[in-house]
C-alpha cells in the first residue's frame, strides 16, 4: 500500500514538473490590474525599441480599451444584461477583452467582473471623478507589445506551432536581440491570418461568434477571392507600429481612388421644367465619378 502511494505521488510530481510553461501561466490568475500588467511588463521594451514604441503609443492598440468603452459598455449593459438577461462573467468579458486586452486571460473571475463594472462606470459616469478614476485604471489595459509578440504570436495555428514560451519574444524574423531577450521567429506574424485573429470574426470559448467588424470576412471572400494577394501588414504597417487605418487620412487616400470627369453641355430646349426661358438651350453638366476601392477589404468597415 505504501509502495502504491509512493508511486502515485511520484507520478503526480512528475506531471507537475513536465507541464508546459505556458499552461502554468494560464493557471495564474491575479486580483488586481496592476498585478495583471506586471505579469507582462513591457516597460523595458522602449529602452531599445524607442521608435517602435513611439509609433505604437500613437496607435489605437495603445488605447484599445479606453477607445472602445462605449461599445464594450453596450455589450455589457445591453447585450449581456438586458438582451441575454444574465450576469457578467469573465467568459463574457473575454469576448471583448481577449482581443482588446489579452492579459485579461490571467485575471481572476473577481477581477474580470470588477473590470466590467469599471467599464460601465467609466462610460455612464464619464467626466465625474468616479468615471475618470475608472478610465485611468482601464487605460493600463491595452494591446501591448507582448499581446502580439507573445500571447497571440502562435495562436493562429496552436497545434502546428505548439505552446508559446513564457518570456519569449516572437517576431517575424526571429532576429537575435543580444542579451536583452531571446527571440523566436513566428512567420504567422507576417500573415493576414495573424491580424484576422481579432480584426474579423472572433470565436469565443463557448462558440459565440463575435463580429465586431467583418474586415477579414471581406478580405477573404471579396479581396482574395478576386485575386488580391496583399496582406494586412503590407498596407497597415506602412507607418510601422502606428498601424494606420480609417482614422488616418493618408491611409484612406491610399485605399480609395477618385477620378472625376466634368463635362458641360447644353440640354435640348423645352425638356427641362421650371427654367426662365423654355425656348433656350439649358446650361447643363454631366459629372462622372469613378471611385476605386484599392483596399483589401470593403469600405467602410471597422
Amino acid at each position: 500500500m505504501r509502495k502504491t502511494r509512493l508511486l502515485l505521488l511520484l507520478f503526480f510530481g512528475a506531471a507537475l514538473i513536465w507541464r508546459p510553461i505556458s499552461l502554468q501561466a494560464m493557471d495564474t490568475e491575479v486580483d488586481t490590474i496592476d498585478e495583471l500588467v506586471s505579469m507582462f511588463d513591457e516597460s523595458t521594451c522602449m529602452d531599445c525599441h524607442e521608435e517602435i514604441h513611439n509609433q505604437w503609443a500613437q496607435s489605437w492598440h495603445a488605447q484599445s480599451v479606453v477607445s472602445s468603452l462605449g461599445s464594450i459598455h453596450n455589450f455589457i449593459e445591453i447585450g449581456i444584461k438586458k438582451e441575454w438577461e444574465t450576469e457578467v462573467t469573465k467568459g463574457h468579458l473575454l469576448k471583448c477583452l481577449d482581443c482588446h486586452a489579452p492579459v485579461i486571460n490571467f485575471a481572476s473571475e473577481k477581477l474580470a467582473v470588477e473590470i466590467a463594472d469599471m467599464i460601465v462606470t467609466a462610460t455612464k459616469e464619464k467626466d465625474t471623478p468616479a468615471g475618470e478614476a475608472a478610465k485611468k485604471e482601464l487605460a493600463k489595459l491595452k494591446v501591448g507589445c507582448l499581446s502580439c509578440h507573445n500571447l497571440k504570436a502562435l495562436t493562429v495555428a496552436p497545434g502546428w506551432n505548439g505552446p508559446r514560451e513564457e518570456g519569449m519574444i516572437y517576431g517575424p524574423h526571429g532576429e537575435d536581440a543580444g542579451d536583452a531577450h531571446e527571440t523566436l521567429e513566428s512567420i504567422d506574424m507576417t500573415r493576414a491570418a495573424f491580424c484576422m485573429q481579432c480584426h474579423g470574426i472572433y470565436t469565443a470559448a463557448d462558440g459565440e461568434t463575435i463580429q465586431c467588424n467583418t474586415l477579414s470576412g471581406s478580405y477573404q471572400n471579396a479581396y482574395v477571392a478576386k485575386g488580391g494577394s496583399k496582406t494586412c501588414q503590407e498596407c497597415h504597417m506602412d507607418k510601422g507600429h502606428y498601424f494606420p487605418g480609417g482614422r488616418d487620412l493618408d491611409t484612406v487616400k491610399q485605399g480609395i481612388g477618385f477620378d472625376v470627369q466634368i463635362n458641360p453641355y447644353r440640354h435640348l430646349p423645352g425638356q427641362i421644367k421650371d427654367v426662365k426661358d423654355e425656348k433656350q438651350w439649358v446650361p447643363s453638366a454631366v459629372v462622372t465619378v469613378f471611385i476605386e476601392n484599392r483596399a483589401g477589404h470593403r469600405i467602410p468597415d471597422g
Binding site: 471581406s218 478580405y219 471579396a222 479581396y223 478576386k226 485575386g227 488580391g228 480609395i256 481612388g257 454631366v286 459629372v287 462622372t288 465619378v289 469613378f290 471611385i291 476605386e292 476601392n293 483596399a295 483589401g296 477589404h297 470593403r298 469600405i299 467602410p300 468597415d301
Partner: peptide, 12 residues
C-alpha cells in the same frame, strides 16, 4: 459598401 478590387461609377 464599396467592394475591394472594384471601381464604382456614379453619374450626376
Amino acid at each position: 459598401t464599396l467592394q475591394p478590387m472594384e471601381t464604382k461609377k456614379e453619374q450626376f
